[in-house]
Measured scan of single mutants.
Amino acid sequence: KEYCRTLFAYEGTNEDELTFKEGEIIHLISKETGEAGWWRGELNGKEGVFPDNFAVQINEL
């Protein structure tokens, strides 16, 4: 499994977007979303897309 840590808080504006606080760990599902600048991940049981410049991939939890 791949993970990323959020660098900033983000408020999702669409139903398919994740909302998160700074410093949260998102399970990274895919970097290929069909839309440049967006990754797909899962946080707190919800799957959605989020801007990749708001997070950095990490090697271990």
Rank of each mutant, 00 (worst) to 15 (best):
Gly48Lys: 02
Val49Pro: 02
Pro51Trp: 05
Leu18Trp: 01
Lys1Thr: 07
Glu42Cys: 10
Ile58Glu: 15
Glu17Ser: 09
Glu2Asn: 14
Asn53Pro: 07
Leu18Tyr: 05
Asn59Asp: 11
Gly34Cys: 12
Ile25Cys: 05
Glu22Arg: 10
Ala55Met: 01
Trp39Arg: 04
Glu42Pro: 00
Lys1Ile: 09
Tyr10Ile: 01
Lys31Val: 08
Asn53Ser: 14
Lys31Cys: 04
Glu22Trp: 00
Lys1Tyr: 03
Thr6Val: 01
Gly45Lys: 06
Glu60Trp: 09
Ile58Pro: 06
Lys21Trp: 05
Ala36Trp: 09
Trp39Glu: 03
Gly37Asp: 04
Phe54Val: 14
Gly48Cys: 00
Leu43Ala: 08
Ile25Glu: 06
Ala55Ile: 08
Glu24Met: 09
Ser30Asp: 10
Asp52Leu: 13
Gln57Met: 13
Glu15Gly: 11
Gly45Tyr: 01
Glu24Ser: 06
Asn44Gln: 05
Glu22Leu: 02
Gly37His: 08
Ser30Trp: 00
Gly23Cys: 06
Arg5Pro: 00
Cys4Glu: 00
Phe8Asp: 08
Gly23Val: 00
Ala9Ser: 15
Glu17Tyr: 06
Glu60Thr: 11
Ile25Met: 12
Leu28Val: 14
Leu18Asp: 02
Asn59Gln: 13
Glu22Pro: 12
Lys21Tyr: 07
Phe20Trp: 00
Glu24Gly: 01
Phe50Arg: 04
Glu15Asn: 10
Gln57Glu: 14
Asp52His: 08
Thr33Asp: 08
Thr6His: 03
Arg40Val: 05
Asp52Met: 15
Glu60Ile: 06
Asp16Arg: 12
Phe8Gln: 15
Trp39Leu: 05
Phe8Asn: 13
Val49Gly: 03
Lys46Ile: 08
Phe8Val: 14
Leu61Ile: 08
Cys4Thr: 02
Lys31Arg: 14
Arg40Phe: 10
Gly34Asn: 06
Tyr10Met: 03
Glu47Thr: 13
Thr19Gln: 05
Trp38Arg: 09
Arg40Lys: 14
Phe54Asp: 08
Thr33His: 10
Glu32Trp: 11
Glu2Met: 15
Asp16Ala: 12
Glu35Trp: 07
Glu22Phe: 00
Leu43Arg: 09
Glu22Gly: 09
Leu7Asp: 06
Ile58Asn: 07
Ser30Cys: 07
Tyr3Gly: 04
Gln57His: 13
Gly48Asp: 03
Gly23Pro: 00
Asp52Lys: 13
Phe50Glu: 01
Gly45Asp: 06
Tyr3Met: 07
Gln57Asn: 12
Pro51Cys: 00
Phe8Thr: 13
Leu18His: 01
Cys4His: 00
Ile25Tyr: 11
Glu11Phe: 11
Ala55Tyr: 00
Trp38Asp: 01
Gly48Ala: 03
Ser30Phe: 00
Leu18Ala: 05
Tyr10Arg: 13
Pro51Arg: 13
Ala36Lys: 14
Asn44Ser: 09
Leu28Tyr: 02
Phe20Lys: 03
Leu7Lys: 10
Lys21Glu: 14
Val49Asp: 06
Tyr3Trp: 03
Gly34His: 09
Ala36Ile: 10
Phe20Thr: 01
Leu18Thr: 05
Gly37Leu: 01
Ala55Arg: 00
Lys31Trp: 01
Val56Asn: 07
Gly48Leu: 02
Gly41Phe: 00
Glu17Pro: 00
Ala36Glu: 11
Glu35Tyr: 15
Glu47Ser: 13
Thr13Asp: 10
Ile25Ser: 06
Ala36Cys: 11
Tyr10Lys: 10
Thr13Phe: 06
Glu35Met: 13
Leu28Trp: 01
Asn53Asp: 12
Gly23Ser: 06
Glu60Lys: 15
Glu42Gln: 11
Tyr3Asp: 04
Asp16Ile: 03
Glu17Cys: 10
Asn59Trp: 07
Asn14Pro: 02
Ile29Tyr: 02
Gly48Thr: 00
Gly34Ile: 03
Pro51Leu: 07
Glu11Cys: 09
Leu18Arg: 01
Glu2Pro: 08
Ile26Pro: 01
Arg40Trp: 07
Lys31Leu: 05
Glu11Val: 10
Glu42Asn: 12
Tyr3Cys: 10
Glu24Thr: 08
Glu22Met: 05
Gly34Arg: 09
Thr33Tyr: 09
Tyr10Val: 04
Gly34Phe: 05
Ala9Thr: 08
Gly48Glu: 03
Val49Thr: 11
Arg40Asn: 02
Ala55Ser: 05
Phe54Met: 12
Leu43Pro: 03
Thr13Gly: 14
Ile26Glu: 02
Leu28Met: 05
